[in-house]
Amino acid sequence: MFKILKYSFYDLMRSRWSYVYFIFYLALGFILLFLNNDVNKAVITLMNIIIVLTPLIGTVFGVMYYYNSKEFTELLLAQPIKRSKIFMGQYLGISISLTLSLVLGLGIPFVAYGLFRSSAIFDFSLLLLVGAFLNFIFVALSFNIALSNENKIKGFGYAILMWLFLAVIYDGVFLTFLVFFNEYPLDKFSLIATMFNPIDLSRILILLKLDISALLGYTGAVFRKFFGTNLGMTLSIFILVLWIIFPVWRMNRKLKKKDF
């Protein structure tokens, strides 16, 4: 598995897109710091971007990599390697290289600006951690979609739709629900509904840490009231881990029966 991981990683590290992604984050980091002139404020702005963008990039990269390397995967499948190892290697290769682009791209400007002397270092680390989680989650989800769809266009469409749903539509539906049923106690419902969306969960996790009540929103407030800050954070990290485990498990199950 580590051999496959190594080669997928090399392959990606040399592709133009990894650099575009890296340079984008680099530029974003510098621009935000330049505009905000304050690490703390930049972290908040960055959160809003990371939470929407990393899932999108993870989804697109995951689907693209799967379909582009299809024939090569077939070559690997004819080698004496276990199926699940090939795909886990590729999966980790993409996720790690994306995470590296994120961490380095944002890390360099923030460190240059004096992150280590600022109090925002933990907030910033948490932000990168959440970004890494979102990478691993969305690459796994997109691999699942790609594995279930032979047709490239369809797979790509479903993957983008999934991102759109989780990043935008979900909140809209959720909000409509809250407005519609506002006469009922909705605490539990909204708690559970948040857990079913990794993007919402990441947002709450960061906001709990940043402790900005104004931005917490309804679910965030419920989350804090229900679990308190520390338990809330631990719980949301735990659920994010589940969000990785479940798609990876399904990927392996699907693989056992798939024809190539």
Binding site: Y7, Y10, E71
Partner: peptide, 10 residues
């Protein structure tokens, strides 16, 4: 295999 397609960056 029938179609030879390899990782473009190797």
């Amino acid at each position: 295999p029938q179609i030879a397609n390899f990782p473009a960056n190797l």
